[in-house]
Design a protein around this nucleic acid. Structure first.
Lengths: 117, 117
DNA sequence: TTAGAGCGCTTCGGAAATCGAATCGATGGG
DNA sequence: CCCATCGATTCGATTTCCGAAGCGCTCTAA
């Protein structure tokens, strides 16, 4: 399947709405994680694969193709992959999710210990 | 596969880090969309399915089970599904992504029209 | 020159996730 | 009773994902 982009029909929606394209793109496994792992700076293919818990190289390549097409990632002259300005924007947009996940963990562990306490 | 939760080993990570659990949960198809569609208020099973572009009912049921287990969604006495407080937190954490997707669309269409203009 | 090691990337068979249409039992109205 | 609608399940087909093997290339060093 082609990489989701705003203005293009995507899985689960043919309106071309940017949000739907984003939900399709980020609803594909590893895409969120790849963005997350590239935040520190450019990383080569194999190193990126290791950062992503040794995800399948075939899928990594497919995801990178999608992210390149979506202009969230660019490939440098030395072949390393890096976030574009747009990609960094995604990372910034994702940060509230990090705070939320901590809150999530706290809530669930509190709820879980109610029985024991 | 069991629903991802903080403190639990998930696909692609066995550290139990909340963020990794979140990335696994939201990296599964439709989960982001379901949260998004529930923002307006409680919705019944079939209505929710329609809102999600008539996604497969079997997958919808599986996703709802995961989101119930993750305590992001709760089922009311009238069987309708609704976001929990935690679920609303996810929605709030996701809003920057909506703004970003608009920016994304603007950037891509600008880049695309450079050739034509 | 040759031998190795590491690189980005591809191939391909198997496993897992997703799809989608049919269908079930329960419920309410005519 | 009959029909429509609901939440939910089943199951075969399709799509996606996995993962190990290997390709061609570059660099290093003997």
């Amino acid at each position: 399947m082609a990489a989701p982009r705003p203005g293009r029909a995507v899985r689960g929606s043919n309106t071309g709405r940017p949000l739907m394209a984003a939900l399709d793109l980020f609803g594909r496994r590893w895409n969120l994680r790849i963005i997350w792992e590239l935040q520190h700076g450019p990383v080569g293919f194999r190193a990126l694969q290791e950062r992503c818990d040794n995800m399948s190289s075939s899928v990594l390549r497919q995801r990178l193709t999608e992210l390149l097409d979506a202009a969230l990632v660019e490939q440098q002259a030395d072949t390393a992959y890096a976030l574009t300005e747009l990609g960094h924007g995604v990372y910034r947009a994702l940060r509230p999710l990090v705070r939320w996940s901590a809150e999530w963990a706290a809530t669930l562990s509190a709820a879980g210990s109610e029985d024991a306490g």
